[in-house]
Design a protein around this nucleic acid. Structure first.
Lengths: 345, 345
DNA sequence: AGCACCCCTGACAACGCTTGCACGCTAGGG
DNA sequence: CCCTAGCGTGCAAGCGTTGTCAGGGGTGCT
């Protein structure tokens, strides 16, 4: 910065003021500084300025994984608004429980970011307390955190609606396929399961724990989970998957087993993944990119305005998209209409 | 830090030394400092330490988008090794050419990261020069940057192999579907196209520009591109898509148009996306997560050891996975064997 | 006993930036 | 003609660390 000042023939103070866009700089000085800065391709060091301002100009996000479709979309929306706000984006992911513990133990984000976004974590009270004491605003993304800033979709209502839809098709034995707890996505897992239970209860259908199965990512794990369901004495006629990614794996397993969808088994997903449309997957759409955008905007507000309501909630809409993987409950006394969608040679 | 020092009854120097794990601290002092630090839940400020060490403890990555499967996988591998190395991960994404220009103009990563990873950017000489003058090591990911550190798969050879494979099935009219230039993924686009051309040349097949079409993300754009190909006077019998995501959209379009795959048209992808297996998509697998890991490791090496060879290349293997979307070239004089994989009711 | 070491510790000057404060200048009002 | 106000600028004091350096207190050797 001193170099720029020298080249522009002004003091470092003036350079600093110019580069931050303060209005108390003469046009002449501003022009000289900008020219000098460009020639030296000078970039101000966030580290140094944060040392005095206390602001890092960075937002941290904690995600269970970076590889999932949902997180990718959220990150997309997020980076878009953060870029416009001049904030950098730091990502932390914790793959398993040990890493999760390590993260909360060290809280590396502390003092190294102006805000923290937590995506879909089912936090313990202790973990909530840690984050509350972080000293920076925390925004809970894709999860409802009571009394704390959060951005989410009405998971419970959406899952209730999805389950009702299946009920409306005549299904009485509806399975719920959730992500394995180690994946970290247990938050939406819990809320969606809750909506599912509510919809069962409305219709006085029993909640059968055998119908609720957790699966890890990967085809083999999904095959096991599906097998487990189909081997039940009274197997389900419909499967509600917590995410489209799981639903798509289920479709894959079913096709290679020659089980007709939806004639023998209906499949309902959640997300409206990019591939859902052409796979003809009935699903509950959620605006993932918009979730990211809203989270970024909220974080930005909370950073800039300490008096802002730090318990604000942004609730985004979902809607059911009926497609081809759900249909009426099969009639055992009739032949299936035809073997559709069998495996290719 | 002064608070910790006071509480522990030592000087800040000792606190600093303890917290950095330097060996020249007595056990007694170390214990007192650690206790005090824990009680005050003190965390050192990266900003401040980076000010004096010159290290930010952060690695920046520049990606064309955060929503694509490939970038997500790379980020996964990357975050894994960076976490182990104690480095933070900052992401910058540029969605269009204006943002790209802004990035190279302002170089926000300058001085704010210890290394920069650039994922699959087809850079101009001028942009290369900008990055060379960045002052921190730059690792080119998923692209071969001559004389600079890069991690990539043999795109050219892989695409050549894929095209040869189609040729071996009898195809003579092979289309290449590339990502639209605005998506930023033009780097692998270029190299894969090059391999495709090489394989055509080997067999003395003409390179027909009509067979090379660019498509943006999204179903409509893909439908247009596919339509364009099929309307040619001499339409292709096979399509080689630059990525599985494009290939999957192509399959989608073809299915809804009732065009049998592979009986009327073969489809070949690139990536081995999570969904490729069950969609029975023939593809060229590349170890995306491993690309991320290797990039992170290389960046870490370059940061820690300035004498390390900054032109090191890591080349990772690809392999063709023959599946059901590719088959022999259709025989116009014979009836197609059967209408496989028709749309569901 | 004297000397050379080694080990540990504390003081202090950076690092690159922001910001309160004071200063010099010009313009307008009494 | 003096006083005040306002504007643009520079000075200097930090922000929270690290690294250098000097010094104090043991220990082992001569």
């Amino acid at each position: 910065m001193a170099d720029v000042a020298e080249r522009a023939g002004v003091s470092v103070s003036t350079v600093s003021r110019t580069l931050r866009g303060l209005s108390t700089v003469s046009d002449e000085a501003r022009a000289k500084v900008e020219a000098a800065a460009r020639e030296l391709s000078f970039v101000i060091s966030r580290q140094a300025s944060s040392l005095v301002t206390g602001k890092t100009g960075t937002v941290a996000v904690l995600a269970p994984t970076l590889g999932s479709w949902f997180v990718g979309q959220v990150l997309r929306g997020l980076s878009e608004v953060l870029r416009d706000a001049g904030l950098d984006l730091k990502v932390y992911s914790v793959a398993d429980l040990a890493e999760r513990a390590a993260f909360f133990d060290q809280l590396p984000a502390r003092r190294n970011a102006d805000a923290l976004l937590v995506i879909s974590f089912d936090l313990t009270e202790e973990e909530f307390a840690r984050l509350d004491g972080l000293g920076v605003p925390v925004v809970y993304v894709s999860q409802h955190a009571p009394g704390r800033a959060s951005v989410y979709v009405e998971d419970v209502a959406a899952a209730r609606g999805g389950t009702r839809y299946l009920r409306g098709l005549g299904h009485r034995r509806i399975a719920f396929l959730r992500a394995a707890p180690d994946s970290g996505f247990t938050c939406s897992s819990r809320t969606r399961l809750f909506g599912y239970r509510e919809a069962l209860a409305e219709a006085a259908l029993p909640y059968d724990e055998d119908l609720v199965v957790a699966t890890s990512r990967g085809r083999r794990a999904t095959a096991e989970a599906v097998g487990q369901l189909l081997c039940l004495a009274d197997p389900p006629t419909a499967v509600f998957a917590e995410t489209d990614e799981i639903a798509i794996e289920v479709l894959s397993v079913l096709r290679s087993s020659g089980i007709a969808v939806p004639d023998r088994l209906s499949v309902l997903g959640f997300d409206d993944h990019d591939h859902a449309e052409w796979l003809d997957l009935t699903t509950i759409a959620q605006p993932a990119i918009e979730v990211g955008r809203a989270s970024g905007t909220l974080a930005h507000t909370l950073i800039d305005d300490p008096t802002a309501d730090a318990t604000r909630h942004v609730v985004l809409p979902t809607h059911l998209i009926p497609r081809g993987t759900t249909g009426p409950v099969p009639q055992p006394d009739r032949e299936p209409k035809r073997e559709s969608d069998s495996a290719q040679p």
